[in-house]
Amino acid sequence: MKRYLWRRAGGFLLTALLVNFATFFILQVLPGDPALLMLGTEGSPEAYAALRRELSLDKPVLPRYGQWLLRFIGGQWGNSWRYSLPVRELVSRAFPLSLGLALLAVGAAAGAALPVGLYMALRPRSFGSRLLSLGTQLGLGLPQFWVGILLIQLFAVQLRLLPPGGAEGWVSFLLPTLTLALPRMAVLSRFLRAGMLEALAEDYVRTARAKGLPQGSVLFKHALRNAALGPLTAAGVQFAQLLAGTIVVEQVFGLPGVGQLLLNGVFQRDLPLVQAVVTLVVLLILLFDLAFDLCLGLLDPRIRYE
């Protein structure tokens, strides 16, 4: 177990460094000069030269990367070029929001998927199951952008029950959560249905039933525990994806999350900002991944860490 953790930690650093290095160089080779982008169509050659000097863009790439890395590790993350604010401040505002939204969305999706998936597995041929199956297919296929707009139209414009956007109070998170949760719930419930159907056909379920265990015990203690591995892994992947922000939903609901920050940063070739955000996202995902793997072991004692 200890060796396992050490090995994972090593892999961690290497991955983070690689991604970090790649981002830096991709931003260098992309057409679009940060100084030009800052000046727009009104800049003069003198201003351009001065700005390049100030951003150290006139220096060679490798030493610049080294310098950036040392400072970053030392906690000096610099100022964003796009927002003229400290990167730390931008990041510390955006990450909690995206993290919270990811938790809410995946939590809601998993919470709703459990009864839906179970119902579809236990009554596979009922009318309700067919309806739900159709519903989950819709949930998978509908673009989030459109769903978000429809939800705003219904709940904010027509019914005037919820705010149409912004991050002001907990109510403003209901619609974004719903928008994000719908397609994810569809995925999870289909996973759960498949897993349950498979588990229910297994010998140990028949044995459990034969020795007279009550239905609830058979379902939840025996079948669900085995069927949950698939959907849980899927939920983990969903959560990790959401950590990097959700550009579409953030745009539709005007939420100041990681996605917005990264998008604007990339458009402006805002190196300090993009580097910090990408590195943090990678670290968060790796950390979550590790924690998740450890948790799966609790669920399934067959999993070994070596």
Partner: peptide
């Protein structure tokens, strides 16, 4: 700050 023009319109209609 509202990057999406459709949400802008909906926010105006909803009175936010």
């Amino acid at each position: 700050i509202m990057p999406d023009e459709n949400s802008m319109v909906l926010n105006l209609k909803a009175g936010r």
